[in-house]
Amino acid sequence: MEPTLSNGSTAPVGGLKNSNLAQAWLVLLLALCFGGALAAVQVNLSSVIASNKLNETLKKVPELVWGAQTGDMKVSADPSVVISPGTLTVPKTGKTSVYSLYRVSRDDRLVGWVVKAGGQGYAGKIELLLGLDPDAQKILGLFVLEQKETPGLGNKITVADWRNQFIGKKSQPPLQVVKGKGGGAGVQTIDAVTGATISSRAVTGIVNRTIGDVQGKLTPEFIHILERQP
């Protein structure tokens, strides 16, 4: 028999069990409802988000191979242009490097490659897209995807005028950074951004290293092209 208190109501021993269960019930029900809502969001939005991520780099690719003005025209007017994303695996002692790249072809003829490269800048990671000709002998374009350099100084590496210095440079011998307006020296020099030598050297270093890794390995043995989704 349950103990009774002086005012006649039963002690809350059974009641305590009841209310604990009731509270857990509410949390579980809410968890189920929210879980359902989240599943609906995932099903509907995950493909949109994935294509956003892909397009962010994909739409830069034409201008890195054909140059800024003609790039857009080529793709929109020309259905025979095919851009295929893939990966390039470079075996090295220790860590193998895997690069994301895009193969650009027109009328089934290879026009060039766009490689995504990254490295340590002055104040954080720098990520680039580098456009190369089919044998990686010449640089066709450069675009900075992400950087955290000093605003006003280091982040001038994103300015088109500075980046366009890379267009047309050969890949060998490796590029050098010089301070001050081009000392008339070799063809393989890049003028540093005023007051941001380290950022300029970082970008040039990333370009040199990527070309070094990639040259001679742009063959089906090292490259895996992802299957195009219909």
Binding site: Q120, G121, Y122, A123, T150, I198, A202
Partner: peptide, 9 residues
């Protein structure tokens, strides 16, 4: 301290 890590690296 900016740039210390890239310099150290």
């Amino acid at each position: 301290f900016t740039g210390v890590d890239s310099g150290l690296k």
